[in-house]
Amino acid sequence: MSSTEIERQWTTRLRHRAAGKLPPEKLLPDTQPSYVSSWIYVFGVATLASLILVIATGCILALRGPSWWHGSFIGHFVNSLHLWSVEVFFFAMVVHLWGKFFMGAWRGGRTATWMTGVVTFLASLMTAFTGYVSQSNFDSQWISTQAKDGINATGGGAYFNVLNMGQMLMWHIVLLPLVAVILTAVHVILVRMKGVVPPYDDAASATSAATTEGATK
């Protein structure tokens, strides 16, 4: 195969594009700008860490099944870990989003980072909701019978029936976690591609950060 043929292969072109947009030193940088040494930057990673715990404990629950998580001590424990990781996840995500809001972290070509955050937030709300109606206790009965009226009023009940236990469980353990995890991955990759947004005082470099590459260093 000639070298021009190799250059034209889609694998070669895709690799060059990916390496151009996100070279390894941008994906896993050695240093960060000095303004990043603040507690407020910890909350994105705290959200990520709690999401990992949520998924891991959810996988254990899926492996063992409802009689285990309702009926055994260790099952209750893992069920509680799952719930409390969700509480920490939302707590950290809200502090994270307040931080990014007051930093105006959508500046300098970071709209997609902000918007993937917004959609992840909405997808997480739906995941939590379907989780609450999948508990199979009085709480979930109350929540679903209340919610069905609201959802039926929108006409969505035919497609998203909160009284359909099987459907809600599938949304909770397959579709929505998939959406949340994929969006989170895109979100974090976008942060690495764009570099951390400079503070408002440094707004001039915010614009140049969008145009010149390697702004993280």
């Binding site: 700008p33 040494s37 603040s38 507690w39 809200v94 307040w98 931080g99």
Partner: peptide
């Protein structure tokens, strides 16, 4: 959450001095 947010802004981050000026 509000208390955590304010604390995150006000509390000094460990190792901040070590990295000062090290952009």
């Amino acid at each position: 959450m509000v208390i955590t947010f304010v604390a995150a802004l006000l509390l000094p981050f460990p190792g901040h001095n070590r990295r000062k000026g090290n952009r």
